[in-house]
């Protein structure tokens, strides 16, 4: 892998996805083939230097089917998701273009979806977005013109009907594998599976969840998901990540919206002689437990500022993606 691109052919011409696929991304191909898929979230740089993007993606590029480029997550300003995706697709990496409804209206979003697809993006993740108050610029105007479900349906309409939401024709529709988020361990827990059903109804094809630290809650969620038959209609990738310390765990659950960490996990982190190792061990154990749950199609790793651990965590958990074997098959 070279750190800089110079090949203009890296921009691919518009092409039809392989038969049986909506986009033909590495992620979609792996999931439809029944492989245990891995996606990983990248820490976006506060920089205009492409080398910083490649540096941040480096530990994830070979272990993940797709790298998630966050869209100002937690309402904190960083390099845009579309910029990161444009750079990474030129390097041949799979990306998940995250779109939050917080910062842009339907006009901007639909335009960006076309732009991203033209740059080679093949997976999108449709998000509502954290409130501006959670971020570094709480005085900003929150947009929320669409919500995550209308966003899913909008992209579905663009892709399958070949029209904008206004009905105007798109000459070459974006070929995208459409994802959505779910947060199984957060209130209202009893309605989370119904909300997932609604996202599937809207057109979601894969789901990446927020952090799972509470296995009983997650298993109850999945039991209901199976009752609704949703695991047959959508690929579910539960979210995991290594905690850095007990203090960090406490800070996260009280300051980052939508994160549920049970007391037992926090205490285990606080008692550990080496919290870093303990966080990593908990993450490995969670992946091993999660992969045994029926209806799980892969795992989504969010190792904020601990991206260097991801390869080892996946290997230890026994879910590492073997790129050489994949290439041999191709």
């Amino acid at each position: 892998m070279s750190l800089f691109w110079s090949d203009p052919n890296a921009i691919r011409p518009y092409e039809a996805p392989p038969p049986g696929h909506v986009a033909g991304s590495k992620l979609e191909i792996a999931l439809r083939a029944g492989q245990f898929a891995v996606t990983a979230e990248m820490n976006p740089p506060d920089s205009a230097d492409p080398a910083d993007v490649f540096e941040a993606a480096k530990p994830l590029a070979d272990v993940a089917h797709a790298i998630n480029a966050t869209d100002a997550s937690g309402a904190n300003c960083h390099m845009s998701s579309i910029g990161i995706c444009a750079l990474l697709t030129r390097m041949g990496h799979g990306t998940v273009y995250q779109i939050s409804c917080r910062d842009r209206n339907r006009i901007a979003i639909q335009g960006d979806v076309l732009g991203a697809a033209a740059m080679g993006v093949k997976n999108v993740l449709c998000l509502t977005g954290d409130d501006v108050g959670a971020g570094d610029q709480p005085g900003a105007k929150p947009v929320f013109d669409l919500d995550s479900l209308t966003l899913i349906r909008t992209i579905r309409t663009m892709r399958d009907q070949g029209v904008f939401l206004s009905g105007r024709k798109i000459t070459k529709p974006p070929k995208l594998f459409i994802g959505a988020a779910e947060n199984p361990c957060v209130d209202p827990v009893e309605w989370r599976p119904e909300r997932l059903a609604k996202k599937v109804e809207a057109g979601a094809e894969f789901i990446q969840t927020n952090y799972i630290f509470d296995m009983p809650r997650f298993e109850a969620f999945m039991a209901r998901v199976r009752d609704l038959g949703l695991e047959k209609r959508v690929f579910i990738l539960p979210g995991v990540g290594p905690l850095a310390s007990g203090k960090a765990a406490r800070w996260m659950r009280s300051n980052v919206p939508g994160i549920h960490i049970p007391d037992a996990v926090v205490e285990r982190m606080e008692k550990a002689a080496n919290p870093g190792d303990e966080g990593r061990r908990i993450c490995v154990e969670l992946i091993q437990q999660i992969r045994e749950v029926k209806g799980v199609a892969g795992v989504h790793v969010m190792a904020y500022r601990r991206e260097h651990l991801v390869a080892d965590i996946l290997r230890e958990a026994g879910v590492a993606r073997d790129e050489r074997a994949e290439n041999a098959q191709l």
């Binding site: 409804c101 919500d147 957060v186 209130d187």
Partner: peptide, 14 residues
């Protein structure tokens, strides 16, 4: 506050 028309966001508090 986010004027969501289709269900809760992922940030609902305990």
């Amino acid at each position: 506050p986010k004027q969501l028309r289709n269900g809760p966001c992922g940030g609902v508090r305990p």
